[in-house]
Computed example of a mutant assay.
Amino acid sequence: MNIRPRVATDDAALAALWERSVRATHDFLSEDDIQFFLPLVRDAYLPALTVWVGDNPDGTPAGFIATGNSNVEMLFIEPAYRGQGIGRQLLDHVKVLHETLSVDVNEQNPQAHGFYLHYGFEQTGRSPTDGEGRPFPIIHLRLRAA
């Protein structure tokens, strides 16, 4: 898989990938929640973060990872490609760029929580709401030092 930096023309495709992935994995979000976050992802988060795109051989994105400093802000995989190691490859890519890595995971997304624990992150705390103050508890994790 080719991993490359995001360019502005990727934003619509990455936001659409985000939406498909969220619909497949975040069953605790309502349609209103998804519609609230979609323009934020596309217009605010993607341009503000360091984003790496994992491309399929045909050049379409299979997934992407976004970091802000040493925090993984987003890691989303095209639903058809989940379980094929793309998330691990994207994490491996950013791991070499940062001395430490942390991530916040929705408590209601046990698959993501398990993925990060399996990768080597350890839980460091919990918050009752997300960064927007919404009632989605967050689990805070940090990657164990090698």
Rank of each mutant, 00 (worst) to 15 (best):
D32L: 07
A44W: 11
W18P: 03
V53N: 02
Q84P: 07
E31F: 05
H26Y: 11
T25Y: 01
V51S: 11
N56R: 15
E73R: 00
D32E: 12
L38F: 12
P79L: 00
R82Y: 00
E31L: 08
I77W: 12
A15Q: 04
I65V: 15
R42N: 04
S21C: 10
V72F: 14
Q84W: 14
S30P: 06
P39A: 02
G85L: 14
L17V: 05
V53A: 04
A66T: 14
Y81T: 13
A48H: 12
Y81W: 15
R42E: 07
A16Q: 11
A24D: 11
A13F: 06
G85N: 14
A44T: 13
Q84S: 04
D32Q: 11
L14I: 06
A15C: 07
D10W: 10
N69V: 14
I77S: 03
Y81H: 15
P61Q: 03
T25I: 02
F37R: 10
N71A: 15
G63P: 05
G85P: 15
P79N: 00
L46W: 05
N56P: 06
F28L: 10
V22N: 00
T9Y: 07
D43A: 10
E78W: 08
P39G: 01
D11A: 09
E31A: 09
A24K: 09
E19T: 05
H26V: 04
N71P: 09
T9S: 10
I77V: 15
V51T: 15
L17P: 04
E19R: 06
F28P: 09
D27N: 05
R82K: 13
E73K: 00
L29K: 07
M74V: 11
G54M: 13
H26G: 02
G83H: 13
G85M: 13
W52D: 00
D43T: 11
E31C: 05
V41F: 01
F37C: 08
I34K: 01
D27F: 09
A13T: 09
T50S: 14
I34H: 01
L38K: 12
T9K: 09
P47F: 05
Q35K: 11
Y81I: 13
V51H: 05
P47W: 07
V22W: 06
D55P: 12
A62K: 01
G59V: 06
T50A: 13
P79T: 01
D32T: 10
A15H: 05
